[in-house]
Design a protein around this nucleic acid. Structure first.
Lengths: 194, 194
DNA sequence: TGACAATACGAACGTTCGTTCTATTATCAG
DNA sequence: CTGATAATAGAACGAACGTTCGTATTGTCA
């Protein structure tokens, strides 16, 4: 890996940290230059536009999510165990990965009415994740762990609602019981699917 | 109402519309001046700081939420009917009130790591709403509509998760089935509380 | 080691940000 | 109708924004 690639990674890492707390748009070229000890122009040259920088940040976020949440789950047995693994690592490792918690929740609102490549990629990422969850639930049905009449789309919707609420109540409103309630909710969802 | 108060309301209305789609921070004095046909300085004079403008926007948002969601519910019978009313008007009237949907979800992420009066007021608003929901559920228990062992905090958490997921899947990912799934989830939550 | 490309820097661009003046125009009570 | 006061406009501010350019420094490989 050449020198250029190395500093580029360092910049994106820094940008990811910043973005998880203040949002994508507020990760400014200037502030990023300050945080990395580089000049604005030197940093900028690696991306040639802010839009491309934002895309790199989302790309890196997806990669980390795959490494932390998806990949370990794929090593677990198919079906329910896999769902449990994804839920658990989302709640613990993924929330702890960045200072602002789940970066997808942090940037979702700011991207949702702002067309462009960043939004497109983000939505694609979310859909892909939803599909992964759906497939895992489908397997759980096939394996006989879930009832045959489980509504898969409804299941994914409810599963997604848990982490959304966890982020909202836990991080924003500072409710220390949010984690436990998220877990309760997950167990309830599984129990109803059996 | 003097002329000043009148234009001030018009400005805040406009700002609220903008904020629901692009976020609070991006409602710029300049863009707001353009949208209302005023000069930057003339508009600015009404608030004397952007922070105070943002606060006025949140104040207006809360007032509308009370008018649209809370007040009508208080006219319904205590307990479950009241909960149903709040849920239903949140999903329909409140989501339709502003072009970007629920403004609280739009600004939650951008406020959560940004201390200041705006964040403080927003959090207070959310806590107040959570308390209202909790109280309504408590009444439902007292009235014998809900089981005595319903965990009220858990109930509020799950209720809040529904609208969060609705916003996420419906508005961001564009899932047209989101509304139905939110309704299904609500009915399930009530059924489990009976 | 020398040469050539890759990388970084400093300065400046035009624009927009929030904000502060001063001057002018509307409003409204007496 | 008049005079005080409130409301608005216009011009300008320093700072920060993303971006460009020319130049210096550094890294890489023959």
């Amino acid at each position: 890996m050449g020198k250029g690639e190395e500093t580029k990674r360092a910049i994106v890492d820094q940008a990811l940290e910043l973005a998880s707390t203040v949002g994508l748009e507020k990760v400014t070229i200037g502030s990023l230059a300050g945080a990395t000890g580089m000049s604005k122009s030197g940093l900028f040259a690696h991306f040639r536009s802010k839009e491309r920088l934002q895309l790199q940040v989302l790309l890196e976020a997806r990669q980390r999510f795959v490494d932390i949440v998806i990949a370990p789950a794929l090593k677990k047995p198919r079906g329910e165990a896999r769902l449990r693994s994804m839920f658990e690592s989302t709640l613990k490792q993924w929330e702890a990965e960045l200072p602002g918690g789940c970066i997808f929740h942090a940037v979702a609102a700011e991207l949702d009415d702002q067309p462009g490549p960043a939004r497109d990629y983000f939505v694609e990422t979310q859909r892909e994740y939803a599909e992964t969850l759906r497939r895992a639930a489908e397997i759980a049905v096939e394996e006989g762990q879930f009832r045959k009449d489980v509504d898969l789309d409804q299941f994914v919707f409810e599963l997604g609602s848990i982490t959304a609420a966890y982020h909202h109540f836990g991080r924003l409103l500072g409710d220390p019981g949010a984690e436990q309630r998220a877990r309760n909710m997950f167990e309830g969802l599984l129990a109803r699917s059996h």
